[in-house]
């Protein structure tokens, strides 16, 4: 494993870890259910994507990389479907999203 490739892979894995934690932080901070879903999608896309890319660089051109790509494809196709099902189920059950007013001054405090 050459030094540059190693460094690049660690950079990617660190970025993945960072975005995972940020997504979870958003999951805690956001004011209502619908906004929390946006935070969770950061974990699902950027966090997972960067981390899998970093691991793939570590593994090199092997069967392991192919499986990592498979895991990535699974996340990228399945997570929006699950998120959409979640949003639709919540909407059908009548959970109203908190919306911002039409003008900026109506926004008010968003923190709970």
């Amino acid at each position: 494993m050459s030094g540059a490739l190693d460094a690049a892979s660690w950079l990617l894995i660190s970025a993945g870890g960072f975005f995972c934690v940020v997504g979870a932080l958003g999951l805690l901070r956001m004011p209502d259910f619908y906004t929390r879903m946006h935070a969770a999608s950061v974990t699902d896309t950027l966090g997972a994507g960067f981390m899998l890319a970093g691991l793939a660089l570590q593994a090199g051109f092997t069967l392991v990389t192919a499986k990592l790509v498979l895991v990535g494809l699974l996340i990228f196709f399945a997570s929006p479907t699950a998120t959409h099902a979640l949003a639709k189920a919540a909407m059908t059950r009548g959970l109203a999203p908190r919306l911002a007013g039409p003008r900026a001054e109506e926004e008010g405090p968003w923190k709970r």
């Binding site: 979870a24 999951l27 929390r36 879903m37 969770a40 997570s79 979640l86």
Partner: peptide, 22 residues
């Protein structure tokens, strides 16, 4: 709400996948 919990469970699932890989 129950949907918040389901969303959290979904996130935990994704993270568990990554954790298994790592």
């Amino acid at each position: 709400t129950v949907f918040d919990r389901a969303q959290a469970a979904n996130t935990i699932g994704t993270v568990a996948m990554l954790l298994l890989a790592v």
